[in-house]
Computed example of a mutant assay.
Amino acid sequence: MTRLATLLQTQLSTLPLGRMPFAQVMEMALYHPEHGYYGPGPRRIGRQGDFFTSVSVGPLFGRLLARQAVAEWQAQEKPDGFTIIEQGAHDGQLAEDILNALNEKPMRYVIVEPNPRHQEAQRHRLGSRVEWVESLSALQTGPKHAFFLCNELPDAFPVHLVRWNGESWQELFVETADAETFLLVPGELTSPALAAEVARLPTDLDPGHTLEINLTMLDWARELARAAFQGVIFIADYGLDEDEFFVDSRASGTIRRYHQHQMDGRVLEDLGECDLTTHINFTRLIEETALHGLTQREYDLQGRVLGRLAMPWLQSLEGSPPDAATLRQFQSLTHPAMMGRSFRCLILEKPARA
């Protein structure tokens, strides 16, 4: 049993019903400062880690985002203090790739990072090239002009699990099965906010259909909208449109654990030692951001979005192919059989806060 699992067993034994909402367990498993998957510091990604990201493919992803940032800076008439803001920067590799591609353009780079151990790893890599804030709330006083980006951030927010029993939606809780294992059990919804989201769900699904409700993502979207800057928000992640969650093939939900490039649905095993992620509901995210004044510029598969971002670069080659390594990166990022279809990109325009 992992240290996190032992801690969870102890906590469950102190609760009146001996159970805890799955969202709370997922938060512990990922972010407990000592025993969570991400708490002690950035995890290794790529071939030697548990999973690949667009960043681990190589520097091309950062170079394309740098081009987009420069285009937004120019579209806003090159304002002083223009800032690239990244949240979910992990070990700082994407920031380094972007900064290296900017060719010393007069831009600030700010990372939103609450975890001091992640900050330490980022400082070791980036030094004085970057500034840090601990939360989005620090952006309510500035900057005035910015390009905000995040790569694979909302998919790692803790989610509530709900299951349709044929008559009503119930929340799933974690309780102890025996000395070594946990199980999910249904119960009543734990908050008005969760009940409001559940009220949006269909009631014509087969009994047992399970869905994730990402309340943290909605809170995040509202806080992002309250930031002072005007500019563009770039969100890359794996997710689905709302109707795609309701098909029979996804009746068990999309929550998965990752370990050494293996994926399965045994999300209550090896807690704290495996990554837990879920597909985000892009339809719901777009709706929530629109309610708070953000407008959709583009939403598409990553392959198509990055292909369009790459067009000026490809044209600059004047018919000469890029070097083999860069070509492999481009194919990995955009090909439908690789990351081009499994990831999606949402680009939002944000006006200055009134």
Rank of each mutant, 00 (worst) to 15 (best):
L136T: 10
Q93M: 08
G187R: 10
E152Q: 11
D155W: 10
P106V: 00
T141S: 12
A179N: 10
I85T: 09
G127I: 09
R108W: 00
V159M: 01
V159C: 01
Q170V: 11
Q140C: 13
H90N: 13
I98K: 01
V174Q: 03
P154K: 12
P79G: 14
E167D: 07
A177Q: 13
V112R: 03
H90M: 05
P79D: 12
A95C: 06
V159R: 01
E180F: 11
C150A: 15
V159F: 00
S168M: 14
P143F: 01
V130M: 02
L149Y: 04
F148V: 15
V130G: 03
D155S: 13
Q122V: 06
H90A: 13
R163G: 04
Y109P: 07
L136A: 09
V159Q: 01
G127R: 05
L153V: 02
W132R: 08
E131H: 13
P106G: 05
A101Y: 02
S128D: 15
T83L: 09
D155N: 12
F147Y: 08
D97R: 02
W132A: 09
R123E: 13
F82K: 00
V162Q: 03
E188W: 07
W132P: 04
P114S: 14
G142P: 00
L126E: 04
H124N: 13
E175V: 00
C150S: 15
E86M: 07
L161K: 11
R129T: 06
G142E: 05
G88D: 03
F182V: 11
L149S: 06
Q170D: 11
C150R: 10
N151Q: 14
E113V: 12
V133D: 08
Q170N: 11
L94P: 01
E131P: 00
T181H: 15
H118G: 05
E175P: 01
A138C: 15
C150W: 07
D155R: 09
H90Q: 09
E120D: 11
S135R: 14
I85C: 04
P143N: 02
P143S: 04
S168W: 13
E86H: 06
V185E: 10
P106E: 01
S128F: 01
L172K: 05
N103F: 08
L94G: 03
V130Q: 01
L99S: 02
N165T: 14
H160M: 04
R108E: 11
A177M: 08
A156I: 06
P116M: 08
A89I: 04
C150L: 15
Q119M: 10
I85R: 01
V110T: 14
Q119C: 13
L161A: 07
P116Y: 05
V110D: 05
C150E: 14
R123P: 05
E167I: 14
E175L: 04
T83K: 08
D178Y: 03
V133A: 10
V174P: 00
I111P: 00
R108Y: 00
R125A: 02
A101S: 09
A95I: 02
P114I: 08
L136N: 05
L161T: 04
M107Y: 02
L161P: 02
A146T: 06
E188R: 15
D80I: 10
V162D: 03
Q87I: 15
H160Y: 12
E77G: 12
R163D: 05
D91Q: 07
L94H: 02
F157Q: 06
E180T: 14
R163T: 12
E180N: 15
A121P: 04
F148Q: 11
T176L: 08
I111Y: 01
Q122Y: 06
Q93E: 13
L102A: 01
Y109S: 06
V110K: 03
